[in-house]
């Protein structure tokens, strides 16, 4: 197990943990930066300044209570559904690939793709917002036509690591996938 620091496409720091279980089983954890106190304070401060301005204008204290409630609900919603702390990718050569998202609240969502559905793992380029970025994705095979790709599953969507990091993960994925192929051939 080793920890390495990379940067994401915006220049923020992310930590990549690589855990090797066996030759064909590997896990990558990408840990995004924690939510900073500064951003929470800024957000609440802005909301409250706006609320007090409204209150001064309308002189109705319902505005203030509504702001309290909505700030709290907004924060909970953000922590539970939006802010992702950790993204992990578990590669098992004989089974498949499992992707886990861990939200700040502790909620986890997991997706598993069986090996026989996976055609390949590649690094692709895309235009995202006002940027052209690289991302890692899994190509899924079309069950009816094995030559074609039915869909693309992008990985590390919230962390958005930069190319150096992607190449690292990509190489490990390819090692395991090539193991699988040679295994299939022997079979």
């Amino acid at each position: 197990m080793e920890d390495r620091t990379f940067s994401d496409i915006e220049g923020g720091k992310i930590i990549v943990q690589e855990r090797l279980f066996s030759k064909t089983c590997k896990e990558f954890n990408i840990i995004c930066p924690k939510m900073s106190v500064r951003s929470v304070v800024t957000a609440t401060f802005t909301a409250w300044v706006a609320a007090y301005a409204m209150y001064a204008y309308t002189e109705n204290n319902m505005v203030l209570s509504a702001t309290t409630v909505s700030t709290i609900i907004g924060l909970l919603f953000y922590l539970h559904f939006v802010k992702i702390d950790q993204e992990s990718l578990l590669l098992i050569g004989s089974l498949g690939i499992q992707m886990t998202l861990t939200y700040t609240s502790g909620k986890e969502s997991t997706e598993f793709i069986e090996m026989h559905k996976i055609k390949d793992v590649v690094i692709n380029e895309a235009i995202f917002m006002q940027k052209a970025i690289y991302y890692l994705c899994i190509l899924l095979e079309d069950p009816s036509e094995p030559k074609r790709i039915s869909s693309i599953v992008p990985l590390f969507q919230s962390a958005k690591p930069n190319l150096n990091c992607l190449v690292q993960v990509y190489n490990s994925c390819q090692e395991i996938l090539s193991e699988r192929k040679s295994f299939n051939l022997v079979d």
């Binding site: 940067s7 915006e10 220049g11 940027k131 970025i133 690289y134 930069n162 190319l163």
Partner: peptide
């Protein structure tokens, strides 16, 4: 986004 952050394309 400083120039140094932008990945150099292959």
């Amino acid at each position: 986004t400083p120039d140094s952050v932008i990945d150099i394309a292959v």
